[in-house]
């Protein structure tokens, strides 16, 4: 089925295993660390969410995994393993062979991700021509099949249209069609519904879930939306200022967070808040990447902060049940 020689991963081995990933970003005022020792893994059929606010490094992590980092950023450490290979050590040509059949990505902004001057049918068929050597006509047929699958009405006619002739929701469907074309092991979805209206968002999330079930993909969902994580993911990795502060099964993390940042985020959702009562907001805002403090990254905003947090950065340590948190005092949250 696929052109890569290595066997597809079994259900028990992770389809994607990221370990100690570090990414540096060069800025006019010097080099800053945008991603600092991020590790996670995800099996086929499972969904892992990378949750965090802007600048926390979640998108940078995703782009490093698929090898699409901006030239200003470079991976300075760690490993990204798929099918037993560390993609960070592959040549660009070898790496490109993985793009599509093994790893693929759906971006937030479908209009910039699609080629504006090429009919969509040809774009969606492209993976088949590159990886499977199909003719233009055969690839176009495959594209029409995919467009039908993702719910584009009248796909045969619409294959000749250009991206701007589609609505936002339909464009997102086209991107998804292209991403799943070669049945990847791992699908990375970077804020796939953020730019869409609520009712269309729901349709796209449902489509992603159906495709995941059908093709048994591992999905890495990059999002800032806690509710999307609650509804859609099995496991969650919470990121703050380039580091992982907490990870575990979504239900466990959301019912009893073990990092004050996770707790703060959950509390600031106005969903169950009483009108007229102030929301329990997290004070301040995330640190600039150039000014991340040496101790705990969250110290400046943390209600539990004390001297040790300023001196010593807490490492991500296991708190049982397959969970871990990077906090010196996470036990105190359980009791609070």
């Amino acid at each position: 089925m696929t052109t890569t020689s290595a066997p597809a991963p079994s259900d028990t081995a992770p389809a994607l295993d990221v370990e100690g990933l570090c990414v540096d970003l060069s800025t006019p005022s010097g080099t800053v660390r945008a991603v600092n020792g991020v590790s996670f893994s995800v099996r086929r059929g499972r969904t892992l969410a990378l949750l965090g606010e802007s600048g926390c490094g979640k998108s940078m992590t995703a782009l490093s995994v698929v090898g699409l980092l901006d030239p200003a950023a470079s991976v300075t450490g760690g490993a990204v393993r798929v099918r037993g290979k560390d993609t960070l050590r592959l040549s660009p040509a070898e790496r490109r062979k993985l793009a599509g059949p093994v790893l693929s990505i759906v971006f937030q902004d479908a209009l910039t991700a699609l080629n504006p001057v090429q009919p969509v049918g040809r774009q969606i068929g492209e993976p088949f021509r590159i990886h499977r050597g199909l003719s233009r006509r055969q690839a176009e047929e495959k594209a029409i099949e995919l467009m039908t699958r993702v719910g584009i009405p009248e796909p045969r006619q619409r294959a000749k249209s250009y991206p701007h002739q589609f609505s936002g929701g339909m464009r997102q469907r086209l991107l998804i069609a292209m991403a799943v074309a070669l049945d990847p092991d791992v699908l990375i979805a970077d804020e796939p519904t953020t730019a869409l209206d609520v009712t269309v968002q729901a349709q796209i999330m449902r489509l992603l879930r159906d495709l995941q079930d059908e093709r048994h993909m591992a999905v890495v969902l990059i999002t800032h939306d806690l509710a999307v994580v609650a509804q859609r993911a099995d496991d969650v990795v919470v990121m703050y200022a380039g580091t992982v502060v907490e990870q575990g099964a979504v239900h466990d993390v959301f019912t009893s967070p073990r990092h004050p940042y996770t707790r703060g985020l959950l509390d600031s959702v106005p969903e169950d808040a009483e009108r007229g009562r102030p929301l329990p907001a997290v004070p301040g805002s995330p640190p600039e990447l150039s000014a991340v403090p040496p101790g705990c990254v969250f110290q400046a905003r943390c209600p539990l902060v004390r001297e040790r947090c300023v001196r010593e950065r807490p490492s991500l340590r296991s708190t049982g049940d397959g969970r871990s948190a990077a906090c010196h005092f996470s036990e105190e949250l359980d009791r609070a």
């Binding site: 729901a202 449902r206 609650a230 859609r232 979504v250």
Partner: peptide
């Protein structure tokens, strides 16, 4: 359609899905 925080309501089966846009 608006997702909610409650993880016990994780299934979108009871969700009303609108046709089209």
């Amino acid at each position: 359609a608006a997702p909610v925080l409650d993880t016990s309501r994780a299934s979108d089966d009871q969700e009303i899905q609108l046709k089209g846009e």
